[in-house]
Design a protein around this nucleic acid. Sequence first.
DNA 1: CAAAAAATACGCCTTTATGCGTATTGCACT
DNA 2: AGTGCAATACGCATAAAGGCGTATTTTTTG
Lengths: 216, 216
Amino acid sequence: MKLQIGIVDDNDHISQQIAENLLLTDEVDIAFMASSGREALQWLNKHKNHPQLILMDIEMPGMNGIETTFRIKSEYEDVKIIMLTVFDNEANIFNAIKAGASGYLLKDEKLPVMLAAFTEVLEGGAPMSPAIAMKTMQMLIGGYKTDKQLLYNENQEELSRRELEILELMATGNNSAAIAGKLFISPSTVKKHIENIYRKLHVNSRVELLLWYQQS
Amino acid sequence: MKLQIGIVDDNDHISQQIAENLLLTDEVDIAFMASSGREALQWLNKHKNHPQLILMDIEMPGMNGIETTFRIKSEYEDVKIIMLTVFDNEANIFNAIKAGASGYLLKDEKLPVMLAAFTEVLEGGAPMSPAIAMKTMQMLIGGYKTDKQLLYNENQEELSRRELEILELMATGNNSAAIAGKLFISPSTVKKHIENIYRKLHVNSRVELLLWYQQS
DNA sequence: CAAAAAATACGCCTTTATGCGTATTGCACT
DNA sequence: AGTGCAATACGCATAAAGGCGTATTTTTTG
């Protein structure tokens, strides 16, 4: 039987695309696609045959990917989880690992890389052969400044699904017009969303926004 | 005797600041400060007592931090080198590790983290900022596509010292006016530099610039 | 159903950013 | 001495971004 995979992403378009790509390789089956953490948990509760692997978006409204990962791992520890994100945010990486994620891939990762990652994860996770990776894990698990994710959730008003979608497009280099084109909405609307995002995150430029996510 | 440290950074202001911070802890001595790779090598050639540890900026005009690291490690293999950078660029991480760097820290890392990193390195470990550690893991898990650093150097016209300086300021959220203020030059000049940077790197906005460096 | 939240959209105005041409000065290398 | 590059600086133009108010529709939720 092929590798069974679940996909959790609030953006149906993205999960659809990932699923299509994966199916083309003919090496995996898509067990389920969920567009929220709650949905994913419900699916797992209702079904007996769980996928071996779940691809989990981090940036989701409501229950985010990290919390979802934590809950899934508490109930079904055998399921491996790979986080998908467009941001390599420090606090997120740290929390994802603590929550039990086995891998952490950027969304724009190429297909072969993804497939290789699947194999590695299923073979017992961390291919930490070089000493560097060992140290890395030790440091991450051993004690990174935990104060960060507190701030992280306290200061932040939650972004809506649409806002997260726009945020991701901004973070991949799209200007307002391009975003409007891709989402089939007016540039005015995009600008308004961006305005709201800025207010919620206390930033006031695209660069600051990226820094907010990336530098921490 | 205290830990002897060398600092190599083309931006004297930054090395000065790092040095001051480190000296305040009263745990280290600054053996030397060099503002180029060549200078660092010359210092090492002229002196018998080498520092145990060198902090090395990656983004330097002329001989960059990676090449400098490689040369230092070929001649003086006992010296540990920690790379300092504002970017967690994949190709750089990969090449820095190949060149023999022991650690890889972001420049805005806090002092306690830095000191802990020093100890780790001297004990044979490999400290990294979590964001970078994750990139490393990705590369190890996913198999790193080595073609990237070729592109990296072919497509890229080399940035001048001033351009790198401005690049770093841009990458930390400064707008043109702020950069002008910090460098005591006219906003017009800053704009011209930015224009030149864009041309050299084939980008045309701040966000693209950040992506060029960060997403790889 | 009613209230709240989210998504949609415009207009107006100010500030920044971007692109291009031009020009001067100083320094390094030949 | 001359060439080339880096750094400095302006002006002019268009494009994009950012801030604020307002308003309608749709969706979610109690």
